[in-house]
Nucleic acid binder design. Sequence first.
RNA 1: GGGCCCGUAGCUCAGCCUGGUAGAGCGCCCGGCUGAUAACCGGGCGGUCGGGGGUUCGAAUCCCCCCGGGCCCA
Length: 1060
Amino acid sequence: MVSIQNNLEKIKYDQFKLEEEIKKFWDENKIYYKVKKKSMRSKKKFYFLDGPPYASAKSIHVGTAWNKVIKDTVLRYYRMCGYNVWDIPGYDTHGLPIEVQIEKAYGIKSKKEIIEKIGVENFVESCKRFVDENIKAMTEQFKEIGVFMDWENPYVTYRDEYIESGWWLIKQAWRKGLLYKGERVVHWCPRCETTLADYEVSEYKELKDPSIYVKFKVKNSQNEYLLIWTTTPWTLPANAFVMAHPDLDYVKVKVDGEILILAKARLEKVMSEAGKTEYEVLEEFKGTQLEGLEYIHPLEDIVPAQAKLAPYHKVVLAPDAVTATEGTGLVHSAPGHGEIDYEINEKNVGAPLISLVDNTGKMTEDAGRYHGMYFRTDANKAVIEDLEKKGALFHKGSIIHRYPVCWRCKTPLVLRATEQWFIAVRRLKERLIEEARSIEWRPNWATIRFINLLKELRDWVISRQRFWGIPLPVWECSSCGYRHVIGSVDELVELGGHKPEQLHRPWIDRVTLKCPKCGGVMKRVPDVLDVWFDSGIAFYASLSYPRNKELYESLKPVDFIVEGHDQIRGWFFSLLRSGIIGFDEKPYKRVLVHGFALDEEGKEMHKTLGNYIEFEELISRVPRDVIRLWAMNNTIWEDLRFSWKSMDMVWRSFNIIWNVFTFASTYMSIDNFDPEQTKLEDVEEALQFEDKWLLSRFNRLLKEYHEAMKDLRLHQAARIVKDFPVEDISHWYIRLIRRRVWEEEATKSKLAAYAVLYHVLKGWLLMAAPFIPYTTEYLYQKLIRPAEPSLPETIHLLEIPEPDDKWIDDEVEQLMDIARKLTEASAAARMKAGIKLRRPVKKLIIALKDNSLRNTIERAAQIVKDLANVKEIEIVGIDFFENMKVYGVEPNYKTMGPEFKKMLRKVIAYVEENKEKVAKDIVEHGEHKAEIEGTVIKILPKHVELKVEYPNWLSTVETDIGIIGIDTRLTKDEILEGYAREIVRRIQAMRKDLSLPVDAYIEVWLEADPEFIEAIEKHRNYIMTETRARNLRLDKPPEEVYQKEWEVDGKRLLIGIKKI
RNA sequence: GGGCCCGUAGCUCAGCCUGGUAGAGCGCCCGGCUGAUAACCGGGCGGUCGGGGGUUCGAAUCCCCCCGGGCCCA
């Protein structure tokens, strides 16, 4: 016969050691692959797509760990529900951030140096090595926190197959006419020498810039000037026109003999800033009157580019570009250096697009004397000097404002017109919105946020002028300009190219094709793709589509993705975008959005802020499962505030859970309980009230757990997992079954308790396994599997049980609630009267408010009797206490509100004033009539709460079911019984001192005062059974036995015990 | 400047969707229990539910404005 073995009692609880042991067990026995193999046999597919973390560092962020734990929990849950779970992890590996780190490692600063000093080949190989090292380190950390994913087969975005899948999408875009090359004002990093997409312009710094007021002379006027304001003097050489607001009021002002034109609303501010106190308003008019007014640019003669721009020098109306809150109400416009300028120019002006800044931030030849100067420094200075010389500078100051900087290298960005490759996603807007709406978002507000940003969609700049990325698969004929987009390596070969060593630059750049139109040489456009392109195609590229079509077609669509809310704009969007471009359908069905990991103050956790918690530190201070359960407890879509303290609290729960299992292990093994022999069905007849209660609780919570998991309210499931063993099993059930478990013989009742406890603990382990895989595995190996050797070698191969409705019993649970309340109330009543729990009390009187509860309460009586240590329970009506003095009532808003409505305040005031009268009437007649401001109202018992006072021998406590009281008058019998319990408790303490096994027998010697002797004689049997004493002598203990002298109620008591 | 989320006891948070006299755990103080005890039970202290306004007989909960924090965008 196999039975429960006592494996836990001997082990000192050490969560760290436990996890180490299990980690070793998983590794040595290849547990993950066994779990995966079993999962793969299932027909029910669950396609999960891992949002690839960016492999730019060796250590993961706490938030990344949380993210993976969420994923792991869901994957484990679905595996344990019998699904075939696709669980390939991914790594995002291309892009500027990695290039920047490699540049730093080489100690270089520019693209030129990469090409000339390092060589692109070396550079790209270095990027790859760097990424590989990071992937290795990150993978170890993910494994460390117990994530079961296919770590040996991750998808990595830099691999050739992945790149090829990327080309396929570009080809689709091209086929659909969505790919185009165009000119656009973009944010440009002059250090990285590449453009940045809108969403990459994410960092701003407080920078000091010049703030200058410049006079543009009105053409054909004597001394009239348009006054403009700018913080970017370097853009003035590229000025094309001036913008004004049609509805603003403008003025002509005479200052120092000159006439300036500016907005009326700005006049005072500008004049005071320039230190002008004397000025005169000559004229006032609407902005519309300025339209078409021509001017002469002050630098026209020294900037060659101005020759092309001069014909456009006039005022243009642009309500969106001009405000009355800053500047002068007249805005200088350089279409080559401003987004809105560009748009207005396209729409209303049509000046040539001229950008006077080159790739490295220096002014071009067309800028004349500014040629070669860096835009924000030398060029600014020189322009201001020239303006001053020419008398065009009205005022010069400086300003500190937020200015966009490169998110990687922090260099201030420049806006400049460049040629870039685009995908016309704006044309897909309707489809995107339509598909987005049919995606299931958790929580719901994510939909709103997602749709909001789709509405502001702009075309996607996909090209970057860098090295480490998916090469843009566009070949262009150097003689006739003919273009072709390549969709795969095969196609490249077919068209006369060859398969390069790898698909990255520079190898791919060496592949040339023959132009089918003119026979010339076709070369690849040197750009690479935006990194966001990479992860956005993961839903098919991670499966090597289209090379392997079947796999994606059998798995699609993705069933589930989960990332932080920053990814709404990021990955969730880029996936959908690629889905629509490539397949015209949404690639995923369900999305869960989680929060951000913040520091203890609720601030962003960042290395540069000094509040960063290293993963290594975290994992060395707190056990993995504790971290997991703590993190999963947090409301999933809200931010996770880091807290060592709250992790300690969760840790405490683990301790209690350990104690619960030790308890089970200890007693079940003493009694050789065999769960395979004695199943729940076998003990149904013997089930006690508390057993039925626990089974009901367990099944109810199991049901809620499954509902929460399926609905992605993961935190609610986590809370059930954490609280059930603590609140229901430890705090309550075990307390109730202790007496049954201590019985000597294998009674049916005891077996029933074991069967129930075993059933519930095993069920809980399965529910908890997705959340705390280490701990549950450990307890499974120590307790469950030895008793049921036919079970699989790991808990993670089992399935989570479904709830059994037959056990869910509302009445039993309600009844237990009542019993719990009564026990609490009786403890409170004892406290009031100062009677220890060890002293039995003769009678507990329960005065019920609602007499129909009488029967149910009688059923709960035994539990209350035991826990409250009372001899007898008497259930009576609320009117029981004849001599109780009713002194008042308290209004019940919930019932009075709907009835008295607007009168409520007055009725309450009345009741407060007439408490005693109202109470007396309610008790004696069941109602109280009152006249309030002419209206007669009836106050009924349901409207008020009675407040009462009791005789002093009665200690009472009010509860929502009624009033309970205990008779505090102790008789001799009860005093003696109390003594007996005092003695038992002391003998138990001494057993413990000797660390006697729970089932050891002892001999006892007692020397005591006569009153104790009487108690001992009367309760001899009780004392002996409780303490497992074979012998009890009223005698002085012999020298050699363990003995101790006690004092109880001021009386002496000498006890000696000896193991038999 | 805009969109979305969060703000409840000293700390960590639940309650808010579906309005009805403010909850848990931890901490602190007092008492009890003791065969899972670095556990457990009872009581106490502790809250302008971020602030203001509105709807309602009644608002932590619904609506509007403001403040603080977070993410995303300008």
